[in-house]
Design a protein around this nucleic acid. Structure first.
Lengths: 338, 338
DNA sequence: ATGAAAGCGCTAACAC
DNA sequence: GTGTTAGCGCTTTCAT
């Protein structure tokens, strides 16, 4: 099938070791030998077999990235950034998606395919602390996102509470008083939106406003459909907020669509703030104000963590890294500039 | 480091072969032996080393998927479908993105990382036929998308000309006469939008309308920004179409945003049809009429092709598969239903 | 500076 | 039914 080191060695009239030295740029090789070997390599079209190399070295050069779903542009954009960041360290990214289901998240975290990967970057939705503690696989795990765990794993996430407060503050500054939160979960036990919801409560309270639970709308997932449904439910039960802070941009965009269908204007009747800064939001008919996490930084830091652990920092205590974020003000809160 | 077959064999008091048989569910194993081995496996927490297995079998269980960019929801959704389809065959997907650049597409097609993968699914934008012919790597390659090549590779793509004609037909049926095309390339040499542009020409001609080149707007890429810019350019040079057929949904959405900014109504003033059926289109303030390729089918067929080639159909002539597509009519052409 | 040989963990012949 | 053995292609001591 393929051309092996041995074939090259035979052709060049040297030993495999010498060929290996040339391939790996080992310094102590006579220029003459090197050239002869190189010619044999070129003539035979030799390409090193990475699988064999990996078997030998115990590393595969592959990092797995497990996200809820590629259909969510935030994760798609993040995945792209991770692929780029990994390439910078000569790592390739293996992609898994969990659909935000605990079962799949468990599978991934417990080393499904762990033999092929050197590290794992996981963005969990429903996974629980005990699931993570039960982990036996040895590959470094880096956590991404809002969920908080008391486990010895590096964790990269922006300050969600602060970010949520900034968003709500912006709405309050605009004179809004009935500010709804879209994207809580029905079952309070597992509340992935925990921190953003907390930020919403804190900022309202700080402003002397009552964080009324009737203005919290639950969703099943975090897609456009969920946002539209939650907005509809809120309006159907007679609540009429003058602003909406959504768990993420997709929920916000779904809500805006529902508002538009019902003849309510954004931002005149209802101002909307999202979270994630997906490109789609900036091109919506009414562009979306949002919290922009620094995706490049998140991706870079996550890959860095994996690489560092691999480089031997296995014993260093788990790190908690908070990349930056900023509020991006667009039409959904301040209207179209003239 | 890890627990190996040998360790298990030692513990269970059998040979490695027997352990291997148990692990691989080889039928001829005494129940008693099997149980003893299984216990040893559980106690030691043995997990097979896939790298070694792959080295031995010459297969890695990994398929690479190379798409232009994850930031485009169409490709993100498609990638998700491919991951699922691959999982059905016990394959994992390695993701690469090419940014639609010939250089990166070349790299991928010529076997960058080819040692780690069993097959490659590539969606090219700028790659040329000669680039593909120069390919030396042996792993099966399946092509995706609109570009046409005269090379011996399986190719999965909907009938782009027919799909484009359907879209334009729809606009004509609605009484539109000045139908623009958004998304041609500036350089005519490389015209990825070739087929859709041809469909636009054919259908206009068939309807007795002149396909005026002044109604063709070029873009640099295929994002929202490009669509907005192309729409702006068209309007700026005094053209006032009553309908727009865009290369894809992102271009269409960008165009709609630009129309909205300029106070033109969709569909009253300008009807818009996109291509891809990304979820975003159905939740736009004015939902987007579009051509919906059967993404699940595309993904499934692509993976099937790779798997079949791997299973030994290496000699079978290249297949040209055309999954289905359909026109999804929404508000951007027929307005909001009452 | 280069060669010989061992072995990473696994599977597949072939023996018993 | 189970054990023995030989590699898959590579890197890595240890010699020379």
């Amino acid at each position: 099938m393929g051309v092996s080191l041995k074939d090259v060695a035979l052709r060049a009239g040297v030993s495999v070791k010498t060929v290996s030295n040339v391939v790996n740029n080992y310094p102590h090789v006579t220029p003459g030998t090197r050239e002869r070997v190189q010619r044999a390599i070129d003539e035979l079209g030799y390409r090193p077999n990475l699988t064999a190399r990996h078997l030998r070295k115990g590393r595969t050069g592959i990092i797995a990235l497990a996200i809820p779903e590629l259909g969510n542009p935030y994760f798609a954009e993040l995945a792209g950034a991770v692929v780029d960041a990994a390439a910078g360290h000569d790592y390739t990214v293996l992609l898994d998606h969990t659909d935000g289901l605990r079962e799949k998240e468990l599978l991934v975290s417990q080393g499904f395919r762990a033999q092929v990967i050197d590290g794992l970057i996981l963005s969990p939705i429903e996974l629980e602390t005990e699931d993570l503690l039960a982990r036996t696989e040895g590959v470094p795990l880096v956590l991404l996102g809002e969920r908080e765990y008391d486990v010895p794993c590096d964790h990269i996430a922006i300050d969600n509470v602060a970010a949520a407060r900034t968003a709500v503050r912006h709405l309050i500054d605009l004179g809004r008083r009935r500010i709804a939160f879209l994207g809580a979960r029905h079952e309070s036990a597992r509340q992935p939106a925990h921190l953003r919801l907390r930020g919403w409560r804190q900022e309202l309270t700080a402003a002397g406003l009552e964080p009324s639970e009737t203005l919290v709308a639950a969703t099943h997932g975090y897609g456009r459909r969920d946002g539209a449904a939650a907005m509809a439910a809120l309006l159907d039960r007679g609540e009429r907020p003058d602003a909406v802070f959504a768990y993420n941009d997709l929920v916000a965009l779904g809500a805006m669509r529902e508002l538009s269908v019902r003849g309510l204007r954004v931002p005149e009747d209802v101002a909307v703030v999202g979270f994630d800064d997906i490109e789609e939001g900036s091109f919506a008919a009414v562009s979306l104000t949002t919290i922009a996490p620094d995706k490049q930084a998140i991706a870079r830091l996550a890959v860095d963590c994996v690489v560092e652990r691999l480089a031997g920092a296995a014993t260093t205590p788990a790190r908690r890294v908070r990349p930056g974020h900023r509020l991006v003000v667009r039409e959904s809160t301040v209207g179209r500039r003239t």
